[in-house]
């Protein structure tokens, strides 16, 4: 079974097999939860977010993008002690915006991937903090310096990570 959504004739649309659709997000969530036991600084990365952006851009379908982001975000929420929906809402919006951007622009090259990840990471953190403080009354403080550094690191990691994930793609 293949899942793909066609949206544009100019920009290539990719299909991702069902095993990839399930295993890649689960693998990202697993690594995100497991590696910090030994490498605490690994929490600066947000692999589930990178997977959300990659899937959304590759499929170029806003609905599949937002649903993928929503599900990944909710699973990520369940691993925390905070209410379910904080990461869910943030990644739903990012999935929608990333796929909408993918429909309009070519985001296959390294430079655009770097910039896209950088800005989506910042936006993700802002949405997360806004939802946490506004809707869930969580006493969350954003450290802008740290968030900017994390955005750069995530953007740097995204380039080889997306290149690795490119191997899982097939043409629609």
């Amino acid at each position: 079974m293949q899942s793909s959504i066609t949206s544009s004739e100019q920009i290539q649309v990719h299909r991702l097999g069902l095993p990839v659709t399930i295993l890649v997000p689960l693998g990202a969530l697993f690594i995100q939860a497991y590696v910090p036991i030994y490498l605490p600084f690994f929490t600066i990365l947000d692999l589930p977010l990178l997977v959300t952006i990659f899937f959304a851009v590759a499929r170029r379908g806003p609905i599949s993008g937002l649903l993928t982001g929503g599900v990944i975000g909710l699973v990520q929420d369940s691993l925390t002690h905070q209410p379910l929906g904080l990461y869910g809402i943030a990644k739903t919006i990012i999935g929608y915006l990333a796929s909408s951007l993918g429909v309009k622009l070519d985001v296959e090259n390294h430079g655009s991937r770097f910039l896209m990840t950088f800005f989506f990471y910042l936006l993700h953190q802002v949405i997360y903090a806004a939802v946490a403080r506004g809707l869930a009354s969580e006493a969350l403080q954003l450290r802008w310096g740290h968030v900017l550094i994390a955005a750069v690191i995530n953007a740097i990691i995204a380039v080889p990570f997306f290149a690795l994930l490119d191997k899982t793609k097939g043409r629609a």
Partner: peptide
């Protein structure tokens, strides 16, 4: 310890 939350916003094991 078998895992973490993987998030900087939730310090959980």
């Amino acid at each position: 310890v078998i895992g973490t939350s993987g998030s900087e916003n939730s310090r959980l094991i």
